[in-house]
Structure formats: C-alpha cells, structure tokens
Design a protein around this nucleic acid. Structure first.
Lengths: 211, 211
DNA sequence: TTTTGTGAAGTTTTTCACAGCG
DNA sequence: CGCTGTGAAAAACTTCACAAAA
C-alpha cells in the first residue's frame, strides 16, 4: 500500500512520544491524547495508525508498548545503513555528536572534507578523507546514503562525485546549495535558514496563520 | 491574499538561486530553467510567482535582478527581528556561526543555557544567561522569536518560560522534544533525525518514490 | 515564436462524522 | 458508553493546458 510522506514524518514523532510515555509508565493512550501532545488532530492520528492495521482497542485506546513496537516494525529496516557524510563543519560535527545518530541501525563509514587538518584524522571514530576520494571510498564501502553538509557552492560537485560512485541511493541535504540528481536518487532537504524565513514571513502577517 | 506555506518555502529557494544567477551575470531566466535547477515543475514556479503580481515578460522570462528584488520585498519585513536562542550546544553554536543568521534583519538579543561555563559569557558576541532568566530577559528585550535547541526533556519547560515573558510570538524548534503552545504562538519544527528516518523508510521501499 | 499567467482539473492530504466493536 | 477505524467530504496543493502578451 502507498503510504504518504507526511504520515511517515508523524510516525517518527509518535514513536518518540510513545517511548517517553512508556518510560513514564503509561499503559494506554488515546488518539486524542497523542494529538494534544504533538499538536495533531485526533482523527489524523487514527488515520495514520490505521494504515498499518487495527492496532488500537475500541473504547480503550492504544496499548503504549504494543503500539510503540508496532511503529518500530514499520519504520525500521532489517539492514544496517552505511552512511557517508560530506562537509565536517559545525553542522556536520553537531550531527555526528547527536545521540539519534549513534544508533546501531546506522553505520558511518566515511567522512569527507577539503580541510587538510581534518583529512586523515578520525572524527567521532570515523575516518575523514579528502572529498576527491568520494567515488572510490563510497564504492568500496557501499554507502548508499550521503549526508551533505557542505557549503552551498560545493553541493553540486559533491553530489556528482557521490553519484559517480555508483552506490548512492539517497541524500539528506543540509546544505543551502541546490543541486540536480537523476530521478532514481531520493533527496530529502532540511534547510534551517529557510524555515526561519518562513516563520518570520508568517509572523509579519498577523492574519494568516497556517495549519 | 492567502499564500500557502509551501510557496513561501520555495520562494526562499528562488531567492537564493536568483542571487547566484545574478552574481554569475545572468540577465533573464525562465520558469523552465528555475524549475530544472531547483527540482520543481515550471508550472509550479510560475504559479508561485504569479501570486505576487505579473513580474515576468511573456516570450522572454523573468528579469533576474528585478525578480530577485521583488522576492526580497515579499519575504522581508520592515522590522528587525529580535531573537533569543535557548540551548547553546553543538547545533545552537553551529547556527550562530552560520552566515545566513548573521543578517542585519536578525538581532540575537540573548542566549540561554544551564551550563555554568556558558552562563555569563559572550558567545559570538551575544550574552548568555541562565535559562531561569528567560522570562525577564525576553520581556526586557522584547524578543518575539525563540530558537529552541535544547535537549528533548527541556523543551516544554523552556517554552513555558518563554511564553510567560509575554512577548513570544514564534518558535523555531530544532529540539526533538515535543511541546504544547497556545494557538497564537507560531511553531516551525525542524527535525533532522526524523528526516533521516523518513529518507531511510522510502529507501527500503524500492517501489514507493514520493513527489 | 516563445514563455508567461491562470482558470480548471487532478492529486494529495486532512478532517468529518459515524458505524462498529470492546 | 467510549474510542477506534474508515468511507466520504473538504481543503490544500500541484499540474495541466491554453489564451494572451512580448
């Protein structure tokens, strides 16, 4: 079945919330409560969860532990993802040190930069190569995923190198630079300055309050 | 007129692209070209731009400089935004050092943390206070915007402090923690680990390739 | 001829409203 | 009775297709 992109995004949020509720000792939770805690409508929560089978109990709600495990099933894949990161600046480093990225499901295989002080060193236990080595090292290590945290003007050339490795399948782009990829490469963009601009735009328009 | 959220997000991208094209000496650009460079359909580009008046020339395209200035008009507000940031860890520091945040339109008025080594110091030229001072300092400095980069479990209490200042209008949330706010507070969330999970979900499903 | 601007059509996503089950 | 699961309706967003302008 076809699952919508926004649903998957919310599923990650449900997962986090359920882990918290589990730790706090909650046994059951209603779609109403989930919605209030995360800022979604209860009907939205129910619709999202219903895509994956009947998991709740009518008249009662959802069993926290069961639902949590169920969502893990949906989101996780059996394989361990081999990941490369290009651009080990402030943002790259911040991510590497982030708890969420230290998961057994993710294996950082290689870092790339053009700063000679970083090249050859180990950063958070991962070796850093010169960016020109991207095709060889990514191919060797079969890293299907690239996290791109390079300056805007380096984005396209970096992606081109990664594509030429022949193993790239997805890119998480934290760079502000735009770039073109073949259709079969999946790209997810995260653009923090753009999100701030969006927030400020809607703040200056007192009448327009989106979703 | 009502402008959609996705349109504003793309407007920021158009703006960046146009600045690049301007620097590179391009005089005109078509919706087709913009679309190819940013990965949108040409009709999408035209529709977005048409919301703000007839700015292109039929048979020719858009005058790069004129369009760029026009978009700046739409996005920018006459005021300078007073911004506070809570949680001066790796991500917070990465943002403060980011070029996009060093704009004359943005004024970082205050930083907040609970680390005694940071409290009382100046970080990138901005004073850091103890998080308990959020209500007083934000009120004093009339900071309408809060960038929230604290650990998940501190998110709600931090936001509550900011709301109690009485001046908060919008939050850019980089934290993974969820929190509840009154309707009149605008929240934009950026969740990098969630975006990575989404990417991996769609990568494991070879048949489902979203938008 | 080329490319915009835009109603109308199409698609996706959210919300409603209520049947159905515990 | 309370809360889920879900078709159907509504809203939001994107794409089409073509008239109109340069």
């Amino acid at each position: 079945m076809k699952i919508a992109e926004p649903t998957i995004e919310r599923l990650v949020q449900y997962h986090r919330l359920l882990e918290r509720l589990r730790e706090e000792g909650h046994r059951v939770v209603s779609s109403q409560q989930i919605g209030e805690l995360l800022g979604f409508k209860a009907s939205q929560v129910r619709k999202d969860l219903s895509y994956f089978g009947e998991i709740g109990k009518r008249g009662v709600g959802y069993h926290v532990e069961r639902l949590c495990d169920h969502i893990v099933q949906i989101l996780s894949s059996p394989k361990i993802w081999r990941i490369a990161m290009a651009g080990i600046g402030n943002i790259g480093t911040a991510l590497l040190s982030n708890q969420s990225f230290r998961s057994p499901k993710l294996r950082f295989e290689a870092l790339f930069d053009i700063d000679t002080r970083k090249i050859g060193s180990e950063i958070f236990g991962v070796h850093c190569w010169d960016a020109s080595e991207i095709p060889v090292v990514m191919a060797e290590r079969k890293t299907e995923v690239l996290i791109l945290a390079v300056p805007a003007r380096a984005a396209q050339s970096c992606v081109d190198l990664a594509i030429s490795s022949g193993v790239l399948r997805g890119v998480l782009a934290l760079t502000q630079g735009s770039f073109v990829v073949p259709d079969e490469i999946l790209v997810v963009r995260v653009d923090i300055p753009a999100e701030l601009e969006k927030l400020l735009f809607f703040l200056k328009q007192p009448e327009v309050i989106p979703g």
